[in-house]
């Protein structure tokens, strides 16, 4: 049956990749270039510590602390570096702010550049051909795929990450959250709202 055939085919492709990756790791280890324990630690870091929670904490702080917000927009890397307890970040972080007039969206049309230290590893859709091809030409159509519709007179600003600068969107603070703590606000900040394909959760 064709279904079974397709399934077997997929399975053997996957096994082939698994075998090639295993061979590559063994060779690079035996050559002395990499330490498997370090590879374990790198994988673990991205599975457990480096994810959108980092970015959400930064956004929530910017919503509560006007001086921090200003510093963040002026120099993202420098401002986040003051929050050692939230996340480490490298140079070249640029934070762009949504306003009632402008909505920002981030893409990498050439590969998959993404603010890893703030958001973790990019999701498959961010690295996919549909997103990379359409975000710069039809961002409203892309937003529709995410169930988001913005007023026609909202300017849509797309940032194509073609260098080592990394972009994080600072979404607008949802109404009805006066007096909320940073921790509570951070729960409203979704990954997609920091890429610009979504909006924060409403309280």
């Amino acid at each position: 049956m064709s279904h079974d055939h397709d399934h077997d085919h997929d399975h053997s492709e996957l096994s082939d990749t698994q075998l090639r990756v295993r061979a590559l790791e063994t060779v690079l280890t035996e050559k002395g270039y990499v330490d498997p324990a370090a590879l374990d630690a790198i994988v673990e870091a991205y599975e457990t510590r480096i994810g959108p929670r980092n970015g959400a904490a930064v956004v929530a702080k910017a919503w509560c602390d006007p001086a921090f917000r200003q510093a963040l927009l002026a120099d993202g890397s420098k401002a986040v570096a003051t929050l050692g307890h939230i996340s480490r970040t490298g140079d070249h972080l640029v934070v762009v702010e949504n306003t009632p007039k402008t909505h920002n969206m981030v893409v990498c049309t050439l590969c998959s550049c993404y603010p890893w230290e703030m958001l973790g590893l990019p999701p498959v859709w961010y690295k996919s051909a549909p997103y990379r091809s359409r975000a710069v030409k039809d961002p409203r159509g892309v937003l529709k795929d995410f169930g988001v519709t913005l007023p026609a007179d909202t300017e849509i600003r797309v940032w194509d990450s073609t260098a080592e600068t990394r972009f994080l969107v600072l979404p607008m603070r949802p109404a009805g959250t006066d007096g909320w703590s940073e921790e509570r606000l951070a729960e409203l900040v979704t990954r997609d709202s920091m890429v610009g394909t979504g909006l924060p959760k409403q309280p």
Partner: peptide, 26 residues
């Protein structure tokens, strides 16, 4: 269309994590 996967894990297969880590280490 852009198809988002709900609750997507960091890696779908263990070998994907090894590839990412090898690239970082190299």
């Amino acid at each position: 269309k852009v198809e988002a996967e709900p609750n997507e894990p960091p890696f779908h297969e263990a070998w994907e994590g090894r590839v990412m880590a090898l690239q970082r280490a190299m």
